[in-house]
Design a protein around this nucleic acid. Structure first.
Lengths: 88, 88
DNA sequence: TGAATATTTAGAAGTTTATCTAAATATATT
DNA sequence: AATATATTTAGATAAACTTCTAAATATTCA
């Protein structure tokens, strides 16, 4: 765990775009997939990586699974970056 | 370029440790390499990726090449993370 | 119950990545 | 000039990653 998983998750353009989409609010897997020219299977794989990295959370509601940003991990990462500024 | 190269560079543990080392100040390639159980060739490869991502700068002085943090790109990345907090 | 929709899982293919060894380049020293 | 030191470059290999297709699971609706 730690930062490794988080940074790996952030190192892919599609996944960062998914996070950008979720800034506007909760979206289902299908709605997220509509923004990309990829199969649903591929999007599902990316969502899983983001979820494992705790960057998003998933909640099933009937037929759909809704994904949402999990901001707490963003805090930690920002904190890591801040250490570079402070120590200067 | 843009963020892609930067996040890719940050997605490796060794490279993040190199950045942590450089927080204390400038170091030569050899001094950096001494902190890791890897060949100099591998360290050189990682330094090159960090340099291409503008996360560090290199300056040759005689026999040595000194590496230093380049904080300007850190600013940009912190800015990207901040957008997630603000838009909430 | 059966068909349609939403999403995930499994397995495969091609690409990228991290690392090594060996060789090359550049500088300093004797 | 020859040797030693510092670092990079080139080429190879194995592991990890992204993406696809096909199949599986879960849910809703007629």
């Amino acid at each position: 765990m730690g930062f490794q998983q988080t940074f790996k998750a952030l190192s892919d353009t599609t996944r960062r775009e998914i996070l950008d989409l979720l800034k506007s609010g909760t979206l289902s897997a299908g709605e997220i997939g509509n923004h990309f020219d990829m199969t649903g299977a591929t999007i599902s794989h990316h969502l899983n990586i983001l979820k494992d990295a705790n960057l998003i959370t998933a909640e099933k509601q009937g037929k759909y699974i809704y994904y949402e940003l999990n901001l707490s991990v963003f805090e930690e990462i920002i904190g890591w970056f801040q250490t570079f500024k402070e120590d200067k």
